[in-house]
């Protein structure tokens, strides 16, 4: 295959399937990533707070979940979500199969992301010098005040960039969801190739879209980081 025929193939994919690719593939990819990251931040925060709790059982449970998520492949977790979520919520079986698959995958990705985010938050907090807490406590502030007013505002500066990276990672990981044909970009790739049999051109187009999404996000994060530093 020559370079010009590749370009032609890519053009054909873009012009024929533009609406399909952009309109829903990108939308679903971003939606899935957004759900996973926002849900992940909520779960991750709860986990991080839970890990500071005095309850040993709770701490142990959270550590176990985090370690299991980190120690198993994301694709396997999606399978688990795909089969387990409907088992727990039988009502879901009456839903449209694509929607059901989407929900299952979103739940699994959210928990996956929650585990990583909780680690990001924890290490962001731990990276703040212990002296900051000690200074606040020595002035008679409660541990809660020291955490909320002194430690967390500083930890956020460590946490936000890492969260951006997590978002970027999640966008790439959503491609695993195509295993269940949930309609994100990689599913669209499969749909298109099923008709055109032109995998190379389609892959190139989809790859470029993934790259642009992540590249733009990473640039955006860098700008945000810089403006945060300027205000420190």
């Amino acid at each position: 295959m020559t370079f010009s025929s590749l370009l032609k193939g890519m053009w054909k994919v873009i012009s024929l399937y533009w609406k399909d690719l952009l309109g829903s593939g990108i939308a679903f990819t971003l939606l899935l990533a957004l759900i996973a990251v926002i849900g992940g931040v909520i779960i991750g925060t709860l986990f991080a707070v839970g890990r500071m709790s005095k309850l040993k059982v709770l701490r142990g449970l959270i550590v176990a979940i985090v370690e299991v998520v980190r120690g198993t492949p994301a694709l396997l977790q999606l399978y688990v979500g795909y089969f387990f979520v409907p088992a727990f919520f039988p009502a879901m079986n009456s839903l449209d199969p694509t929607l059901m698959a989407f929900i299952c995958v979103a739940v699994a990705l959210t928990i996956n992301s929650g585990a990583y985010v909780s680690e990001i938050i924890r290490s962001g907090i731990e990276a703040v010098d212990k002296g900051q807490t000690e200074a606040a406590r020595s002035l008679g502030l409660s541990g809660k005040d020291a955490m909320l007013d002194i430690v967390l505002p500083q930890a956020v500066k460590n946490i936000l960039p890492a969260l951006g990276n997590e978002f970027i990672t999640i966008i790439k990981e959503t491609s695993l969801a195509s295993t269940f044909f949930v309609g994100e970009l990689m599913t669209k790739y499969k749909n298109i190739v099923g008709v055109t049999y032109d995998s190379v051109s389609t892959l190139m187009v989809v790859g470029i879209i993934y790259f642009i999404l992540d590249f733009a996000l990473s640039k955006g994060m860098k700008t945000l980081e810089r403006s945060m530093k300027a205000h420190a």
Partner: peptide, 9 residues
């Protein structure tokens, strides 16, 4: 403290 520990934020 030896390390001052002024609140950085």
């Amino acid at each position: 403290f030896q390390q001052f520990n002024l609140f950085n934020n």
